[in-house]
């Protein structure tokens, strides 16, 4: 029993990571009906931004891993991630807004490859920064990492706690932002009818930038959390995580923020459980990605509107 609870908790924390990234797909999709395939790389850039912040700090602090590094790293990661996302929107996606659907998707793949390679080739060239061609160890901050916490007989990794708490806070923040601020309401308006919104005096371009920025901030949170949880980061981490998060977004219903959260958690739990519940050779951890992708395909085919319902069902 403890074993299953353990797996459940594991799944929930993994799912929280997916959910944080999935929000980025969903927010952007809800507003411009664009699958920002390069969003996984924003997550990766966020993690590298956080790491870079710590490295720069360590030149002053001599490599302190005290807890107060965390907010600074978070801000650093967010700045880099948001900057990348906004530049990407401005120079790659915006010119293609009226192009055939194939164009932005191919662009997204191009950006994705470009960002990965950019980090791989040039990150280590910055003086004082480690080479990014292999995985880089992520600083293990005190309090957020370290010995597991005992909760009623369950040993819970501190990184897991951090991810789940981060998701909860971000979720509340998002709810407030979308429903209680003028910008958030403008976002809702644009997602329902961009043309009318424009006539009503909403700066649609700005709203789109905001959507990209919100997604990127959450991806940066996820990047930091991922570093703390796994202990290292690398330039390839965005590809698989991005694909999984996209699965989560579709699972919950793309365009729907709550859906992204529900979808992420569901996917995490399903993945964790699949490795234990599927018997025989095909049940091992080696197959868990396969089962996640099978789930993705099944949802896309049989319930493209997702669990909570998507804004747009017809994807012709």
């Amino acid at each position: 029993m403890t074993y299953y609870l353990d797996q459940l908790l594991n799944g929930l924390s993994l799912g929280s990571l997916y959910a944080l990234i999935a929000v980025g797909y969903t927010v952007v999709y809800g507003i411009v009906q664009l699958i920002n395939f390069a969003h996984g790389e924003i997550f990766m850039i966020g993690a590298f931004g956080a790491l870079s912040t710590w490295i720069v700090l360590s030149w002053v602090t001599g490599g302190s891993t005290a807890w107060w590094n965390l907010p600074l790293m978070l801000v650093g990661g967010m700045i880099v991630a948001v900057l990348t996302a906004v530049l990407m929107e401005r120079f790659a996606y915006r010119p293609l807004r009226n192009a055939p659907r194939l164009a932005p998707l191919i662009t997204a793949i191009g950006i994705s490859i470009f960002l990965q390679e950019f980090v791989r080739l040039f990150y280590g060239q910055i003086p004082g920064f480690p080479d990014a061609k292999a995985a880089i160890p992520f600083p293990q901050l005190e309090f957020f990492t370290g010995p597991a916490i005992d909760v009623g007989g369950l040993q819970v990794h501190r990184g897991n706690f951090f991810v789940m708490a981060a998701l909860l806070i971000c979720w509340i923040f998002l709810w407030w932002f979308v429903n209680r601020t003028a910008t958030g309401r403008a976002m809702q308006a644009v997602s329902q009818d961009p043309d009318t919104s424009r006539l009503m005096g909403i700066d649609v371009d700005r709203i789109i930038v905001v959507a990209f920025a919100v997604g990127a901030s959450l991806a940066a949170v996820a990047g930091l959390a991922s570093g703390l949880r796994y202990g290292n980061i690398d330039f390839k981490m965005g590809f698989l995580a991005g694909l999984k998060a996209f699965t989560a977004a579709v699972l919950g219903g793309i365009g729907n923020i709550n859906g992204a959260v529900v979808g992420g958690l569901t996917l995490g739990v399903v993945e964790a459980m699949a490795t234990t519940l599927i018997p025989g050779q095909f049940g091992g951890p080696a197959w868990k990605d396969v089962w996640a992708f099978v789930l993705l395909i099944l949802i896309l085919v049989f319930r493209p509107q997702g669990l909570l319902g998507a804004k747009v069902v017809d994807r012709a």
């Binding site: 579709v250 197959w287 990605d289 992708f293 099978v294 896309l300 493209p304 994807r315």
Partner: peptide
């Protein structure tokens, strides 16, 4: 039959990954 556009692209991507991992 049921999926088109961007979703189809993602389905093919997932199939490609399934093939490699398998």
């Amino acid at each position: 039959l049921r999926v088109s556009g961007d979703y189809l692209a993602i389905v093919t991507l997932a199939f490609g990954e399934i093939f490699r991992i398998s």
